[in-house]
Simulated assay, not measured.
Amino acid sequence: MNYNKLSAEPIALILAIISLVLGVLGCCCYGILAFIPLVLSIIGLVLANNSLKEYYQNQEAFSIQSKNNVNLAKTLNIVSIVINGIIFLFGIIVLLIYGTIISSSVLKGIQQKDNFEKLEYQLDSLETPYEFQEESNTKIDTTQIK
């Protein structure tokens, strides 16, 4: 009986656990940093697949427990990729929604400022003739009494 371990047995399992924990913690910040555990999961999955290929090429050299651990790491990495992928897409959608809301409010503010400046200009241009007409009407408007 051989007790040799596969090359990626510990590291694939560690990457799977770390990526799952970081993925759950990434939910707290709207998934903005979800690409980090996503990358870790992909690396862990590649390492687990390479170790399984190594096991199937020479089954006598490695223990079955090591193969089972790598299969567990592969499964956890796949679960982590799915969860972190969903969190990452959710983060992108949230950023797009916030970006749309912020850009529309900034655009409305700019338009309101432009409208206010136009209105201010129109009021300035209207006040002078109106005041002049009032003054001229009071001076010209006289009645003759017979």
Rank of each mutant, 00 (worst) to 15 (best):
G91Y: 03
A61N: 05
I17G: 01
L119P: 01
K67N: 03
Y30G: 11
N58C: 05
S41E: 01
P129R: 06
T138V: 14
E117G: 01
S66C: 07
L22S: 09
S136Q: 12
I14N: 07
L20W: 10
Q112C: 02
C29T: 15
I83Y: 06
K108W: 08
S19T: 07
Y3N: 12
N137T: 10
D114F: 06
N49R: 11
V79H: 02
K108F: 09
Q112I: 07
K74N: 08
I36F: 10
I93T: 11
I18L: 13
I17S: 08
E127F: 07
Y98A: 09
I78T: 10
S136E: 10
K53Q: 14
D114T: 08
N77S: 11
F62V: 01
S105H: 14
Y30R: 15
Y30P: 01
L40T: 00
S80K: 01
I78Q: 05
F62G: 00
S66P: 01
I87P: 00
Y56H: 08
L119V: 10
T138P: 01
L123D: 04
I42A: 12
L45C: 04
K118I: 06
T142E: 14
S51T: 06
I11R: 03
M1Q: 08
Y55Q: 02
V70K: 08
I92T: 05
V24E: 05
L38K: 01
T143D: 06
L123H: 08
N84T: 10
E135K: 13
